[in-house]
Amino acid sequence: MIPHKANKQAVVQISNGTLTATLGSIGASLIDLRLDGVDHPLVLGWKAPSEYLRNDPYLGCIVGRCANRISNGQYALNGKTYSVERNFLGKHCLHGGSKGAARQNWRRNNQTENAVSFELEIPEGDMGFGGALSVKAHYSITSPATLNLDIRAIATGDTICNFTPHWYFNLNGDGDIGDHLLRVRAQDYLPVDDELIPLGSVEPVRNTPYDFQTLRPVGDAPLDHNFCIARERIRLKHIAQLHGLRSGVALDLHSTEPGLQIYSGDFLDSADLPTVFGAPYSTRSGLALEPQGWPDAINNPSFPSVVFMDGQEYHHQSQYMFSRLSDRHS
Rank of each mutant, 00 (worst) to 15 (best):
P274W: 08
Q261P: 02
R324M: 07
L89R: 14
A132C: 13
T164W: 02
R65W: 02
V43K: 05
A132T: 10
Y139V: 05
Q312Y: 00
I160W: 04
I14T: 13
D252H: 14
T112Y: 02
P3S: 05
A67H: 02
I177T: 05
Y320S: 05
L89Q: 13
T275N: 01
G286D: 05
D126N: 15
G17M: 12
A48V: 00
A271W: 10
S15T: 02
V192H: 12
G131D: 13
P217Y: 03
N110L: 12
I160L: 05
N110Q: 13
L120P: 00
Y168N: 07
D310G: 08
L120R: 00
T283N: 06
D224F: 09
F303N: 10
D39E: 15
G265A: 01
A271F: 12
F163Y: 04
G79R: 01
L223Y: 10
L325V: 04
Q13D: 08
S330D: 11
V12Y: 01
P144E: 11
L133Q: 06
R233Y: 09
S270K: 02
M127W: 12
V43P: 11
G96C: 11
L268W: 00
V184Q: 02
N78I: 06
Q111D: 01
D296L: 09
P41G: 15
R284M: 04
G293Q: 03
L223P: 03
S326A: 14
N300V: 14
F277S: 15
P3C: 00
E124A: 14
G73M: 04
A145E: 10
A21S: 07
A250R: 15
Y314T: 01
H254V: 00
S323H: 11
I70K: 03
Y75M: 04
T164F: 10
K47C: 01
A186Y: 01
H95C: 08
L223F: 06
G286P: 09
A28Q: 01
D194W: 11
A132Y: 02
N162I: 06
P198C: 08
H180D: 01
L77M: 06
A155Y: 00
K5G: 00
T159A: 07
F118Q: 02
A48H: 15
Q261D: 04
P217E: 03
Q13R: 13
L133W: 04
D158G: 07
P280G: 07
S201G: 06
V63W: 06
S15Y: 03
D158W: 05
A10Y: 12
L147P: 12
